[in-house]
Amino acid sequence: MKKNWWKILAVVLLVFTVVAGMLSEVPRLAILNETIRNLYFHVPMWFGMILILLVSVVYSIKYLRNPTIKNDVIAYEAAKVGILFGVLGIVTGMEWAKFTWGEYWSNDPKQNASAIGLLIYFAYLVLRSSFNEQQQRARISAVYNIFAFAALIPLLFILPRLTDSLHPGNGGNPGFNSYDLDSRLRMVFYPAVLGWTLLGIWIVNVKSRLELIRQRLYETV
């Protein structure tokens, strides 16, 4: 029970996010209208993705320093969950864009950057599947994971700020912070970010434990 408090916290936060996100008062803004509630679902996906990919990179670095199966499995599972969050982020974002910008895909630099970011991690999966030997696969995919993350940082954080974007906070558009992320939105937004990220970590935790048990089973058979 003591070790599981964060799982209960994740469930409580997510229930709160869904209930309060759908029912609470939100600012009435032109164009956005009720779609502003997507803030609780779309934006936390990106926060979650970055954090979980960071976990993956950290475990890849750990693997290079100390090659154990555990480090490799966690890095791999975290990358997969990061991809899941990225796909959900793109889907929720496209839905939102359809209602506010008029198109599912409007060639926005952040949309393009996130699509390329996903391609990088799909390439990671392809790279992993092209090795037969476990140790070699683990080491070389760890190297690529770190390399790709270093390439992803300029893509996600630097390039969109240099170009015009429809997203808030870029290319002269004011960020949400400056005018409309008022206290009512914050009340739900921060718990939402924490809740979704904890859920992601929980998935990584369960999946990597399962994978480790499966590998131990194969060894003894």
């Binding site: 390439a123 092209s130 390399f147």
Partner: peptide, 30 residues
């Protein structure tokens, strides 16, 4: 660096393209 990674794998010429294009896109845009 990518070619170093790809040369270790079995199907290296396809892998070279798959691994390098996403990494090189930010540079290409600039």
């Amino acid at each position: 660096m990518i070619s170093g990674i790809a040369s270790k794998a079995a199907n290296s010429s396809t892998l070279m393209a798959v691994l390098s294009f996403p990494v090189i896109v930010p540079m290409l845009l600039m």
